[in-house]
Amino acid sequence: MSDAALGAVAREHEHHDATGAKIGMWLFLFTEFLLFGGLFLLYAVYRTKFPADFHFAATTLDVRLGTVNTAILLTSSLTMVLSVAAHERDNRKLSTAFLALTMLLGLAFLVNKYFEWSTKIDHGLFPGAAELATHAPGEKLFYGLYYAMTGLHGLHVLIGIAVMAFVLPVAARRPRRRVRLGTQSASRLALTAEAGGELWAETPEDAVDEIEVSFLYEHNEELAKRDRIVVENTGLYWHLVDIVWIFLFPLFYLIT
């Protein structure tokens, strides 16, 4: 195997830095908080401007549905933590199961939200509706914010579920990687990872009559750590989704 190929394999390793991956994730979470932060700012301003309208509009939201959803999300955070903890203890089956459960809870949250939104829409309480146009300005803003904030949050739940779907196989897999050296055509040599993806390929100009292969045995623990970071970061993201909801719930449903 040529040195370039070794370089390719080695290169992948070098760049993997668990702490770095964590830092990156936290920075990303900051940006998410700020994204919602802008909306919270608008909420604060309009609430101060129209306290009575906000107060009144909030009474039309269904506290029971909101509470159920809060319970669902909090539970899903628990199952998420359990999934991460199970993965840490190398119990991949349990970890995968809890992750799947988290996904289901996320879906349940969205189903609930769907019913909540559709009742509101049936009652003509959505931006642009003739019904809402007759309400006070503060109420219109309340519903505008309600849809924007719970909508953006719902989008994050959806993204979270999609991410978990991708992470499921990662959480399930044994930390091992196989690579394969082979020829795809008469003149092309390639080193591929079993999971897919070419690590190195070469089209030698001269005939090759001898190939030296040296194997790099990957340290299992290191690969395990890599997967663990993926699971942990997914967990962090899911907690963000949860925390945002913890603020949305009182702001929309409880302060009436």
Partner: peptide, 21 residues
């Protein structure tokens, strides 16, 4: 940058569904 992202997103929403913010 996230603040810009949010603001621009709201402009889009205003234009598409008329949030009114």
């Amino acid at each position: 940058t996230p603040i810009l992202a949010l603001t621009l997103m709201l402009v889009m929403l205003e234009r598409i569904v008329g949030l009114g913010l």
